[in-house]
């Protein structure tokens, strides 16, 4: 049986790959909302990676980092929603590379 911490590394590696897959949505996301969705995904996946790394590297401090990241992940989204929209009227949907 593979020993414990390589298993944890495997889990964190898989999560990292999903994180990188999320980058594609940020790149292609037709409108700003999709990009912010991907950023929100990053927050949650980031917490997941940190938790698995905490077990893999035997560093309990990483749980605090995960806790802080969990709290702050939404602030970018709230800033986007609150600050990006108030002045604009209904904007036309973004014309660029609509899939």
């Amino acid at each position: 049986m593979i020993e414990a911490h390589t298993a944890w590394y495997l889990a964190s590696f898989v999560l990292l790959l999903t994180l990188i897959a999320g980058l594609l949505r940020i790149w292609h996301g037709p409108n700003p909302a999709d990009r912010m969705l991907a950023a929100q995904l990053f927050g949650t996946t980031g917490v997941g990676i940190l938790l698995t790394l905490a077990q893999a590297m035997q560093m309990p401090a990483l749980n605090d980092v995960a806790l802080v990241l969990a709290l702050l992940a939404t602030i970018a989204m709230v800033a986007f929603v609150k600050r990006m929209s108030p002045q604009q009227g209904p904007t036309k949907s973004q014309p660029e590379d609509q899939p």
Binding site: A33, L67, V81
Partner: peptide
């Protein structure tokens, strides 16, 4: 915390998309 935060975030983003017909 992640549950509460992402639930609200999804509401906000849905509301934003609705408001901007994105």
């Amino acid at each position: 915390l992640v549950l509460a935060a992402s639930a609200t975030a999804s509401y906000l983003i849905a509301h934003y998309i609705k408001q901007h017909q994105l």
